[in-house]
Design a protein around this nucleic acid. Structure first.
Length: 631
RNA sequence: GCUGGCGUAGCUCAGUCGGUAGAGCGACGCACUCGUAAUGCGUAGGUCACGGGUUCAAGUCCCGUCGCCAGCUCCA
């Protein structure tokens, strides 16, 4: 046997991986699964030939997946004990845990999870070994049909494998490819999380099953850490912080739309200003186009065929109209308003106006999934030979934006799908141009072959927030189709009319969603440049209000967002409120400050920083804002 | 859209077996004039999501609608 450290050991033929693990001792006894020549197998697997052998503990990525898969089986066993009529569907490991789908005679309540967990603990204490057996497919079908497991029968019928495997632990048996842990006692830390509906095979026309989600870890400490992270995510929930920080609200009267309160809208405007500040030097021209069009426009653009179900439609005096879900058709009309020369390209139209998408009711989620939205949207009309340079510029823009928020991101290149439109040579040139731009920018990226839109290849950007969660925000899509549909042309150097290419791009993406992400990313403690209120001036007593008001005036004149808390409250109370609202700077104003023309600075995290002259404070915070310092 | 759960004051939540609504925080008012995370006292605030039904009587039971939540499906 060749081990991962390169050493080679001799063992008799037919020895099991578990026996080798015992022989090796030390860390190897922790192993719960083995990898033989790259294939994962059970520890009781018999080694008949020379092989590369790896013994994997529950802390390894593969081991953890196996542990969770086995925990799913144990959960299914517990459910079968408590509800014998339960029919099993599937139970795979997933990111952060596992689930198992059941067809049950009644709805499961959240409280029942506790009794299922209790039964699981009994199964774990009994330490049943997992065993594997193989059957002919027909025999397996008979076996499961007798048990009334019709979902398993359906799975088997769709299986190519002539001898599928079954795994048993105790009285429980399940169709499964495996591998599994040696015995149920190896499960040290697990938790059932929630019940939800899920369609059999993800098909909304098939029966709805009940899915129980759970998770398992190698050790209790890791499970605790995971649960703590979930609790932290809940504390940061933008719906809760949005209300507590008075940023925005939702009303039943307009599901999927946001009411921006003054502070939330300040944040929104800061983002749009930031976007303009970056885009104007790069030649973007901001425009505003209609938000309602006759359906004929949507027929021209192709949205009618592909997107009608997601549009807000209305009858306007007997004529069908639709609210725009995207800006591209409007920008195409705008483009076609004039004769364009090759010298005009690239032509960049940006727009921050309203968009409406009729998202299904069940998919709405706070600010993260809305029906009424705004994007930092732009369309670049360009010649094919400009693709590389323009993509490079957009990549730079994306980088500058996300750096400002301290967010890491990864890039995915999605290439030509099977149902592509247009000619192959153009696609290939465009994909190469995208790759060259990515390589020139030194951006690592992954390729999602065949995942592009039917009208062109695209780049998707996944940003990672402070909790390690990934969000897709920016998107850059090349489009050969829309210019075609709108008959767009430019007059080339030789006087010929040629077809421009179009780039759809958004950097922050949907601003509503992006603000939701930012709220959670910063846990409401926005960096100074973003904070809706950057400074709160806190006069200690009635006598200091006049000076406090003057301080606010000087701050406002320096374009610093400040407010005075002139309420008749103790200073400790005012500080507490400002802290809770995550206001970056508090200026405590008393007799000393008023007399000396200074301010006593308190930072929300660094605490009391002592007194400085007002001009000095303004200078310092101004620099912090202009540099977009992250604290 | 589908399955399940939920909907009581601005927020968090009590409300028993069906007998006509409660707390804390917040808000507001008054007093206190205060130096770095909660001063005291008082007051107001509810069509119990909406519509219908059962009942002598409905926040409570039943049906429908809307919205929210967790998933699923969808996501140009």
């Amino acid at each position: 046997m060749r081990l991962p450290d390169g050493s080679v050991r001799q063992y008799p033929k037919g020895i099991t991986a578990a026996q080798i693990a015992a022989d090796l001792g030390d860390g190897a006894v922790e192993a719960i699964v083995a990898r033989v020549d790259g294939r994962l197998v059970d520890l009781f697997y018999r080694l008949e030939n020379d092989a590369n052998l790896e013994l994997l503990p529950a802390t390894s990525a593969e081991g953890l997946e196996v542990l969770r898969h086995s925990t799913a089986h144990v959960m299914a066993q517990a459910v079968k004990r408590l509800i014998p009529e339960a029919r099993l569907a599937i139970g795979p490991p997933i990111e952060n845990g596992f689930y198992y789908d059941f067809d049950l005679p009644r709805a499961l309540s959240a409280e029942e999870l506790a009794s299922i967990e209790e039964e699981m603990r009994r199964i774990i204490a009994a330490d049943y070994p997992f065993s594997r057996e193989e059957m002919d497919r027909d025999e397996a079908i008979r076996f499961f049909r007798e048990r009334g497991e019709n979902y398993k029968v359906e799975i088997l019928k769709g299986l190519d494998d002539p001898r599928p495997s079954l795994y048993r632990q105790g009285e429980f048996v399940d169709l499964c490819r495996g591998p599994h842990i040696p015995s149920t006692g190896r499960i040290k830390a697990f938790k059932l999380r929630h019940v939800a509906g899920a369609y059999w095979r993800g098909d909304s026309s098939r029966p709805m099953l009940q899915r129980i989600y759970g998770t398992a870890f190698a050790h209790q400490a890791e499970l605790d850490l995971f649960l703590e992270r979930l609790a932290e995510a809940e504390r940061r929930d933008h719906r809760r912080l949005g209300r507590e920080l008075d940023l925005f609200s939702f009303r039943d009267e307009a599901p999927g739309f946001i009411f921006w309160h003054p502070k939330g809208y300040q944040l929104y405007r800061t983002l749009v200003d930031f976007s303009r500040e970056l885009q104007e030097p790069r030649g973007y021209q901001e425009v505003s186009t209609p938000w309602i069009y006759r359906v004929s426009l949507w027929q021209t653009s192709g949205h009618w065929d592909h997107y009608k179900d997601n549009m807000f439609l209305a009858d306007a005096g007997g004529e069908a109209v639709g609210v725009k879900p995207m800006n591209c058709p409007g920008h195409c009309l705008l483009y076609s308003q004039s004769v364009r020369s090759y010298r005009d390209l690239p032509l960049k139209f940006s727009e921050y106006g309203p968009l409406a998408r009729y998202e299904p009711s069940g998919t709405l989620h706070g600010a993260l999934r809305v029906r009424g939205m705004h994007q930092d949207d732009a369309h670049i009309f360009l010649r094919e030979d400009q693709i590389e340079e323009q993509i490079a510029e957009v990549l730079e823009l994306v980088d500058e934006v996300y750096r400002a928020f301290g967010m890491e991101y990864t890039v995915k290149l999605s290439t030509r799908p099977d149902d592509y439109m247009g000619d192959l040579a153009t696609w290939e040139r465009a994909e190469e141009a995208l790759e060259r731009a990515l390589q020139a920018a030194g951006r690592p990226y992954t390729v999602n072959a065949g995942d592009g839109a039917f009208y062109g290849p695209k780049l998707d950007f996944d940003v990672t927030d402070a909790l390690g969660r990934k969000w897709q925000c920016a998107t850059v899509q090349l489009d050969f189709q829309m210019p075609e549909r709108f008959g767009l042309t430019y007059v080339d150097r030789d006087g010929q009319h040629r077809r421009p290419v179009m780039i759809h791009r958004a950097i922050m993406g949907t601003l509503e969603r992006f603000i939701g992400i930012l709220v959670e990313h910063f846990a409401g403690a926005f960096p100074v440049w973003l904070a809706p209120v950057q400074v709160r001036v806190l006069p200690i007593g009635e006598d200091h209000k006049a000076y406090a008001e003057r301080v606010r005036w000087e701050l406002a004149r320096a374009r610093i967002r400040a407010e005075v808390d002139g309420r008749n409250e103790k200073i400790g109370y005012k500080i507490r409120e400002a802290q809770v609202q995550q206001i970056p700077y508090m200026l405590v104003i008393g007799g000393k400050e008023a007399a000396a023309g200074t301010v006593a600075v308190r930072h929300r995290r660094r605490g009391d920083l002592g007194s400085v002259p007002l001009e000095r404070f303004i200078e310092d915070i101004r620099r912090e804002i202009d540099d977009r310092t992250l604290d």
